[in-house]
Design a protein around this nucleic acid. Structure first.
Lengths: 190, 190
DNA sequence: AGCATAAGTCATCGATTGTTGACTTATGAC
DNA sequence: GTCATAAGTCAACAATCGATGACTTATGCT
């Protein structure tokens, strides 16, 4: 049937991390128990504390892993180019393998104050600051936040609400329409 | 100090509902315990089961109350008019009294499958269907979903992420910018 | 083969959860 | 004032939660 599963610390750790990402993404921090996560990974629940210290530490590591990478539009490109890159990353990217986007995972666990604070730091400090720098005009921060709201909302629509329209639509059409919305913001200078 | 608090079934029920709305909005379904809610309302926790049956029933009634009302743009108005009305309702409206918008409350409890299903029904069946009917062109549903994503994202930005930009910005400026984004969608017919 | 070490398991703790039933106390009709 | 009824309280249940320490078993080196 199934192999006796050799003992491999690294493999067990990543299996735990993968299962945690999926469980946290679907059920949130409170709704995902350490026993469920361990069962998904096929190991004992106590290994979570042995390898990560606590459930909070596991969560922190699970949502931290692949946030840093991602934004890869030229530093001197306009806001539309960055928004387009983010649309591909957050909404259109095939996340079947690596699980949900960390921002959406955190969003579903925003009941915890620590998670909410980190989510705010991540969104405001990283994404919105980068976006605002590419707008010129008086209220660049407000327009950057509207772009961020559009992106976040698209992710929520697909991941949380589960509307089929965005998922089944032609990606090129989605990029074109969202791009038109961002360009409208560029034209509306303060 | 405080009045001995006369026994009043109706008053206790509404106090419980108000406290539940606040707790559920801030901590989500799992993060808000019946004892916390009852303590906020200043009554005993067992009254929740006496008056509502179960915690789930309390949640259902708490988020159901004021959803139906709200959308009040003319039936023949364009999508921009409806979007503008929704911006005022979801984002700019002063919710200090009545608590957070039910959609955002549900969003923070979307770990539960039943909540997620009801959230999808509410968003798709009510808001998006109304929006899509006001777009003409081929992919009206996709453009309606992008408007919905923008609105949902703005609510998430303000309520969950807690970014100060949207809250402190001039409401008229917010309406103008979001309106420009919706109008860009109107021009981009399929 | 033998052994030290690390990987994995088991039993269990205390705290908290939703929920129930029996009990006490205030209120309004007569 | 008396008393039935409803409103509110108390104690406790079983289940589940995160977490700990002692225990067992496999692995790799010699």
């Amino acid at each position: 049937m199934n192999a006796p599963k050799r003992r491999d610390r690294a493999a067990t750790r990543t299996a735990l991390l993968d299962a945690a990402r999926r469980r946290f993404a679907e059920h949130g921090f409170d709704g995902a128990s350490v026993r469920d996560i361990a069962a998904d990974a096929g190991v004992d629940a106590t290994l979570i504390f042995r390898y990560f210290g606590s459930k909070k530490d596991l969560f922190a590591e699970a949502v931290q892993a692949d946030v840093p990478e991602g934004i890869s539009a030229g530093d001197d490109a306009g806001p539309a180019a960055l928004a387009d890159a983010l649309v591909r990353e957050v909404v259109l990217d095939d996340r079947a393998a690596s699980g949900e986007h960390p921002l959406l995972v955190m969003l579903r666990s925003a009941g915890r104050p620590e998670v909410r604070e980190r989510l705010r730091e991540e969104v405001c400090g990283r994404y919105l600051a980068d976006l605002a720098g590419r707008f010129d005009g008086e209220d660049a921060d407000l327009r950057a936040e509207l772009v961020g709201a559009l992106l976040l909302g698209m992710g929520v629509m697909r991941s949380v609400v589960g509307s089929p329209v965005l998922s089944e639509a032609d990606p090129e059409r989605v990029r074109a329409l969202s791009g038109a919305m961002v360009e409208a913001l560029e034209r509306a200078k303060g």
